[in-house]
Structure formats: C-alpha cells, structure tokens
C-alpha cells in the first residue's frame, strides 16, 4: 500500500487541528472502506489520515417523537441496518443500508462516511434527503446544522470547510401517516454501485398526498430532488395517471451522464420506472 502517516485523534478539536495543520492530502479516517481502497488503487493522493474512531460521543443512536432519529458519525451502516426502529419506521433507510456493499463492508462503513464521500450514486443519500435529514457540523469556532439537501456541491464535494467535521445526522420523526421507499437499480444485488437510485418519502391525509419528496441518485452531479414532479403530486390522491405524469416529469428533471454502468438514456428511462414504483411502494404503508 502507498505510504501514509496515521494519526489518532481523541477529541474533535484535536482532529480538526490536525486536518488544518497537516495540510492538503490529509483525510479523516472513519470506517475506511472507501479511503483505503482509494489509497490502494491510487485514486486519491493521501499523505495523512486522522482516525476519529476513538472520539467519545460520536457512537450514539437516539430517537424521540419530536426530534426524530439521530446517529453519530461513528455509527456503522450495519448497526443501523439491523436496528428494529429503522426496520419498522424507516424502510427506505433500511433498504438503502442493506444494499450498500456487503455485510463485511457494512460492519466497518459508516453512514456519515458514505454521505461525506458525496458520491452521486451513494445509496444512503437519496432516502436521507427525501426524509429531510439534517447534518451536524463541528468546527473549532461553532457548530452548524445544514439540511442534507444543501450539503453537496458536486461529485465528491460538500460545503465542509477545512477543519470542519460532520458529527452526526438527524432524520425527522417518521409519523403514522408517512410512507417511504428507496429503490436501487443495479446489475446485481450485492457489492454493487447503483445505476439509478430513487427515494420517495410522502405523507397522506384523508386520502390525499400532504407532502412528497423525491430524491434521485446517480443521475446528476449530486443527488437531485424532482421539485416539479413533487408539485404535480401534492394535494392529489396519487392515482395511477397522476403518478405516471409525475414520473415523466422526473425524467425531464434529472441530468444523467453515460458511463461504464449505463447510458444517460437508460438512466433517464429508469428514473421514470423507479419513480412510479417507489411511490407505489411508499403507499403500501397505508394498505
């Protein structure tokens, strides 16, 4: 493996200081399942890694009916995937978590790490955005909370400034009137990067769609919302014809590229198919 220096931080302040002082090519080392691969395959130039896994207070998972689900930066994908609360209340998150890498990878990889890597095809991001999640950011001068939808600025790029560290994510509570789904499309079921991922989170009241968020993965420079499709669906009964029109609109709203996994045309088609299916699946919560 290409050589790098390993540093272990015991506090957020120390980690933040190391990130600044050690200069460029210094990266936080959390689960490491992406970073070690990038080092080994020489996809990223890394001189220093700062291991944050000894920092206290970043491993907690809490849930309450007003604030929702909050998990720290060190919480692994596997731990959340197997949490009964996630299985019962957040089937969209559960689907995304269970489709990331393999069991072995999920026992190391963290959700916050997957989010901070900011890949447009990251599985955890669409359902978190559709759920209206917030991300907690530490810096030595202040803490800030940013809506996840505003966190990404491009492939691999986020609003994080040098020395800032994500400490956790909060997902709003899942009410009884909520329906959620995440559908991942790939060539195989395991160890797969998604070709297209579609997340839908909606709430129903008296048979009408109160609110809906659609998040599209791997069809743009960042995970995208489909605001026009969402607007077409709000206040309706989500019958088949309306859903079909909205799915067509989502196809127009995405901006896919062609690459080794699929062509832009195919991705766009799949956005249409999966948006319709995801809405249908989200509605099954009320069946």
């Amino acid at each position: 493996m290409r050589r790098f220096e390993y540093h272990r931080a015991d506090t957020l302040e120390q980690a933040s200081r190391l990130l600044v002082d050690l200069g460029d090519d210094t990266f936080l080392f959390n689960g490491g399942t992406d970073l070690l691969v990038e080092i080994r395959e020489r996809l990223r130039r890394v001189r220093n890694v700062v291991d944050i896994k000894q920092i206290r207070g970043l491993s907690d998972i809490t849930y309450d009916e007003t604030r929702g689900l909050t998990f720290g930066a060190l919480v692994t994908v596997g731990r959340l995937e197997n949490l009964p609360l996630v299985r019962q209340r957040y089937p969209n998150l559960r689907a995304a978590f269970a489709s990331l890498g393999s069991i072995q990878v999920r026992n190391r990889a963290t959700v916050v790490g997957n989010v901070c890597r900011a890949s447009p095809s990251a599985d955890t991001i669409p359902p978190l955005i559709a759920d209206g999640a917030f991300i907690h950011i530490y810096s030595r001068t202040n803490m800030r909370v940013v809506p996840l939808a505003e966190f990404f600025t491009g492939p691999g790029k986020t609003v994080l400034a040098k020395g800032e560290i994500v400490t956790g994510i909060t997902v709003p509570p899942a009410g009884d009137n909520a329906g959620k789904a995440y559908l991942k499309h790939g060539r195989r079921k395991a160890m797969e990067l998604s070709t297209v991922g579609v997340a839908v989170s909606l709430t129903m009241e008296d048979g009408l769609c109160n609110d809906i968020r659609i998040a599209l993965g791997a069809v743009g420079a960042t995970v995208l919302r489909a605001p026009e499709a969402e607007a077409m669906l709000r206040g309706t009964s989500l019958d088949a014809a309306i859903v079909k029109n909205a799915a067509d609109k989502a196809m127009e709203e995405c901006t896919p590229i062609s690459n080794v996994r699929a062509s832009a045309e195919y991705r766009r088609d799949m956005v249409g198919v999966l948006t319709g299916r995801a809405i249908k699946q989200a509605l099954e919560a009320f069946a």
């Binding site: 390993y6 691969v37 080994r40 896994k53 890498g101 393999s102 072995q104 990878v105 026992n107 190391r108």
Partner: peptide, 27 residues
C-alpha cells in the same frame, strides 16, 4: 482482491465479520 470486493479475507472482529484488507492493523 485487496479492495473489499471478494470476501476471501473475511475475519471476525469483536464478533462481527469484516474484510481484513479494509482494516488497518493498528485499528
């Protein structure tokens, strides 16, 4: 594969299976 794709290096750490190639020895 040495990049976490194949599972040949699976070991159990604190009761959970992981890819030994995706973990540093110091960890």
């Amino acid at each position: 594969c040495d990049v976490g794709d194949c599972g040949a290096c699976t070991v159990i750490v604190d009761g959970e299976p992981v890819n030994a190639c995706l973990m540093l020895a110091v960890e």
